[in-house]
Nucleic acid binder design. Structure first.
Lengths: 347, 347
DNA sequence: CTGAAAGCGCTAACAG
DNA sequence: CTGTTAGCGCTTTCAG
């Protein structure tokens, strides 16, 4: 391991001078000396030991990301965070709580012990003392895709209301008035609540009665989506459209529709949530409410860096990323069964 | 920030003693003292500063992962690595080279500067001086899903030969003898080569002539898969089955088959590569060669930890993860057009 | 069994 | 403009 001392010796100068060029404090340094040092660094292929730098400077230039459950969704978020990180000279530590609150707390403590400069947290916990503690010591944190209820903190979340509204308006404008909404129970309660509320609101705004039969909270286990869809389709007054809030659920809905001998979108329209590279390649290409995942990542790190910079306490900002309705081929006009078209009032 | 000094004071002992309990060097310590210290730690909610520990111990308990391009595929690999990491008290730094060799080298240097104890690299480069350098300084590295040609190093890769063979044998045993193989050009050349060779070998073993028309290297751009498939289907002697080596490509193949008015699997059988939570939910549920992604991650960190432990140079191990053929519904018996069934000889 | 002291590699006053 | 010096928070001989 070559150290700053080696470089100093080789260049015949003091460590301080080497340190100065390392930190771009050239201002008052003779060009001759600068060149000498640069050359020595070059020749020795020297890279400063960040650990020593961190210890001295009391900053690591590392941020931590804690996700509740590592899944394909996070790959793009990480990419977004990463891109901001390289711009600012930061590195990223990633950890996964595997859906365990205990593990999440352990991850937070560990990362703090590692002296990360800030944390991006996707929490599974509705609240936690630890969050309050972090806030009390002014530790830079931004929450992503989740928001604890016991504190006010920076966060970047998806504007589910707008996303859901757009999807609903699209469906309503197509003449659908029996729209089923499909939800998994475990997603952060907030998220689910928002989507459900927006669903109801869209209906009410358009004077379509809310039918409780059409609101489905489905156990997050393979097969339950199919089962529920089938049941709905077999009911006396079946839905003509589905708003499905999770990609796996969406695939199950489509599967069930087919099993029933019906076609998407001819007989039943389907809108899903979340967009991947391949959703447009499905059959039919899926109309979805697409979360701009990269942007979420980029924005959260941006917020975090800002917070790290001005250590002062500033009032929490809530950044809402707006989902985009990707209209493809899984939705179409409702078959006219009755003549009264609901009146559409856009948001 | 509470330090070891604070704990020492509170407990009325020396820093050394505190350090001893921190490092579980109780052996010859009076229980009384131990308890006193433990209590002080507890009360102060003290966590040692890993940066200082690292500087002193000359190890960080951090490993780095460098991926060529962050994508959903990596989410599960990361999960696998992570799980091993928590077991061993390690943390993970993740970086993305965005398909740039320059960025990759920068990432390596940066992580080394950060004193990570080892590196898991998914390289885009067929070779690099840096790799040789790392080897020369005995820096612990394992390559994942890629293997540079200029050095011999630990690596964990997918046994594409076995995977491809199994897929081919499945198809051949179903009576298919016009099997098209679809490949993207840019995947690591090794990977592509292996799959292609295995394809040919399976054919030859079963005395089925290799038809160059059926070997398709497709530009990695949306739409090219559809185009190529259509062309094949319209040829005078079209394939009855497709072996598609990438999930997006596979979706395009299926799409094209449908556009042509044909059905999967009735008219055309399709086997894809890579398996996600949702591949079984597609229509039809996809038969795929599934890479055990979690295992890849777990295994690579396992190898890395071993290497970190015994610093000695040991001869490189190449761990091949065996893909599993997930037989679902996108393949079925070929329509009998000629009576001569190819003879199947399993691997 | 416990404490004092040296030092990991670097930065940042402070002198000169 | 450049060098000397004193730590950052921790571990680890080495004495006692």
């Amino acid at each position: 391991m070559t150290t700053i001392e080696d470089v100093a010796k080789k260049a015949g100068v003091s460590k301080s001078s080497v340190s100065r060029v390392l930190n771009h404090n050239y201002k008052h340094m003779s060009d001759e000396m600068k060149d000498k040092i640069l050359k020595a660094i070059e020749e020795l292929n020297y890279r400063p030991n960040s650990v020593a730098q961190s210890l001295k400077k009391k900053e690591t230039k590392v941020i931590g990301l804690i996700v509740a459950d590592m899944s394909p969704f996070w790959a793009d978020v990480i990419k977004g965070i990463q891109e901001e990180c390289v711009k600012k000279g930061y590195s990223l530590m990633v950890s996964d709580s595997s859906m365990s609150a205990k593990q999440e707390e352990e991850n937070i403590k560990m990362l703090i012990g590692r002296q990360v400069d800030g944390l991006i947290i996707n929490t599974i916990q509705p609240q936690s003392e630890l969050f309050a503690y972090l806030q009390s010591i002014k530790f830079p944190v931004v929450f992503i895709n989740s928001s604890p209820s016991n504190i006010q903190e920076d966060m970047v979340i998806v504007d589910n209301t707008t996303g859901t509204m757009e999807a609903m308006n699209h469906l309503l404008s197509l003449g659908h008035d029996r729209i089923a909404i499909m939800l998994y129970p475990i997603e952060n309660i907030l998220v689910r609540g928002e989507r459900l509320e927006a669903y109801k609101e869209a209906l009410e705004t358009n004077r379509v009665p809310v039918d409780k039969q059409l609101i489905n909270i489905i156990k997050q286990e393979k097969g339950h989506g199919v089962k529920t869809t089938l049941r709905l389709l077999e009911s006396p007054d079946p839905p003509t459209a589905f708003l499905s809030t999770n990609i796996n659920l969406t695939l199950e809905v489509i599967k069930a529709v087919r099993e029933k001998g019906l076609e998407v979108p001819k007989d039943v329209s389907v809108i899903g949530f979340d967009d991947f590279e391949w959703t447009g390649l499905l059959d039919p290409p899926l109309t979805t409410v697409a979360t701009p995942v990269l942007e979420m990542g980029a924005k959260s790190s941006e917020l975090l860096f800002k917070k790290i910079k001005r250590k002062k306490h500033t009032k929490p900002v809530k950044f809402e990323v707006i989902p985009e309705l990707m209209i493809r081929k899984s939705t179409c006009k409702a078959k006219i069964e009755d003549t009264s078209m609901p009146q559409i009032i856009g948001k």
